[in-house]
Design a protein around this nucleic acid. Structure first.
Lengths: 211, 211, 211, 211
DNA sequence: TATGAATGAGCTTTCATTCAT
DNA sequence: AATGAATGAAAGCTCATTCAT
């Protein structure tokens, strides 16, 4: 976590540093990001940086935390109006808001995507904490409930499906973002619908082929 | 491509270098891998390294090429006995042989996984060429054929399904090391079956619900 | 240009570095000069060097700039008392102050001489800028004026003469410096006078042989 | 001197090596020329190079010797038809044949020019030996003779005039590539005439102003 | 709290030369 | 005589971090 000195900074300066960090992580990734470049870009003193942050990792964690919060805010609005308990509707919204977030903050989304792919398990655990686990559990409960209500086939493997959905929400956003960015949004939505439809159909309780 | 010097090396030394490179890329990833460490580990002279390889990128490309070849050999056997044209069987075998490869060569698989996540589009293109595109096209053709033969519902969006399969491959690859999903052989097969089953059911031509 | 860091250094240290750079460029020339040797000689950290200077070129440019300033100061005094418009008097002073500078600062003069002979047109342009052009134009104007006033023959090729004078001022200094250094100054001055006299006579407007 | 092995080489190979060396010295100068690049360019083995030449210096000396011989051949023809003892005619022919040589072999001429500027007194002495001194003495004798025959004013300082001629040779050589001075054949001749004419006039025995 | 100079290990890469085959 | 792999010192430069002011 950044030192209190950082949060006591005037908003201007704090934002300046944050933006520079975003630029840096966006362009070079975590491993190759350079503190030297960041302080050069912002004009703050090298020493000051270490008053604000423990080290590079600390800065990275902060950036990701902010991104996480923004992402949550982004999807929260969408989730608000959803009929609770409708998994697919929720997944759809997850994909759509993923793409929307990517369109609104491409650099933040890209950094988040890189993080998801990061090769430093310890760091990942430090940053995500049990958020991923919590989210996963939420989806699992949702799936189980829909099995009970007969909307999802009882032999669907809930943990695998929950995990898959989380995974897809990241990769789908990244994969279709350009399409959504440069093509029509409509086309992107149609694509998502096709994808969802396969999954929906795949897990539906009705008329399932015997296994 | 490595210089001929490298291939003329006695197998012992060549392997020593290759193993050291694998260790290094495995532990630090491409960006942070250090030639200095590799030569220190192997005991070869710094200058000698540059007799064998153009530069770090050249070594990396070589390692990936070898991994690619090994992977291909690995799955080739599995694909041999397959009924051609059965999409799902093929995908299933893809996943299974992926896991087997990971079990046999965890470090190589890990390096390959990192490469997939690499943030250097140009380098990726250099190495993979248009393999990804080719593979995508192959799957699309396969899907179309299975639609004609009535095994896949005609209203399935072929490119989207091909994408989904690619996503799933990545998903499986990224979770190789996940104990919960792929810990035991039994667990691994169960997870793969769950994934395949969702897709199979999602695209089946029989008894489909209206959209 | 060196970074402000360098100019903020205590004079002692700054001079130490400057002297070491002069020694290095004097002994090895630009191409073979080694930053590593300079930092070793001065005892400063490698990293510190790069706090002071952008790179080797930056250091070289700085050294040459200082030399240029010192040279200018050197000749400025001499030029002060000159009757404006007397070309030969000026040329004589140019040669003499060239030799004096060489005697006072042989290493600096040697570095400047090397620079004049440097095989890197772009770098040369960067450093001299249009100073050479300006100086050339000044001499051309002077020559033209003396043609009008009848002291120089009208058929003298002004640009060639101006160029030649600039060239000679460097080479004469280098050539006669040793003489001036180890022989008597008087002898050196006599030599210069002989040289000037040939040129003077060669371009005089009076009693010229037909061509 | 190159080892006998070099001269025993088939002419093809020998020329190949020579041309590559010329290219290298032309492009990078002596200090930065790289044996590694030369052997790469020619395809000969690194070890073979050291069978032919002692080291880089040895190769350089050889190249310069060949250039020297070619230059001599070049001017020899021109000097053949000259009235012996006419200093200015000789100097003029020196300049003209210099330019012709540059036109015919720009790279060789450029290497020779670089050599003249080289900062390695010992190497220079090794290569030129006392040629410069000999040439100087030759000109002094010529001048003295022309003084006696009344074509040069008796009060001309012979050693200084010899020096001036040497300076001018360097001046001409250094400006070969200068479009403004030596661009067209006509321009070249005009510039040379201007230079000669200044000297000629400067040292003429007739109608001299008192000193 | 802010500063920014100092640090030196570290990086990738090139070099001329040697030497066993 | 020819080879070309081996060598390791040296190059220029960047890095995250410390610390005295």
């Amino acid at each position: 976590m950044p030192h209190p000195t950082f949060f006591n900074l005037p908003a201007d300066k704090r934002n300046l540093i944050f933006e520079a960090a975003v630029e840096e992580f966006y362009e070079f990734g975590y491993a190759k990001a350079s503190i030297s470049r960041i302080v050069a870009k912002t004009g703050i003193a090298k020493g000051s940086f270490y008053q604000y942050f423990e080290d590079k990792k600390d800065l990275y964690k902060h950036v990701l935390e902010v991104i996480g919060r923004q992402k949550t805010e982004f999807s929260a609005a969408a989730f608000h109006d959803l009929e609770r308990n409708d998994l697919l509707q929720m997944v759809r919204e997850l994909f759509v808001s993923g793409i929307r977030f990517y369109r609104a903050h491409p650099k933040l989304a890209s950094i988040a995507g890189d993080f998801a792919k990061l090769r430093e398990p310890e760091l990942k655990r430090e940053i995500t904490g049990d958020a991923a686990v919590k989210s996963n559990e939420f989806f699992i409960r949702l799936i189980e409930r829909q099995k009970e209500s007969g909307r999802i086939a009882p032999d669907v493997d809930a943990p695998v499906l929950a995990d898959l959905i989380a995974f897809l929400s990241v990769y789908v956003a990244e994969h279709y973002a350009d399409q959504a960015l440069f093509g029509s949004e409509k086309q992107a939505m149609k694509t998502i619908d096709s994808l969802i439809w396969i999954v929906e159909n795949g897990i539906a309780a009705t008329n399932r082929p015997g296994r």
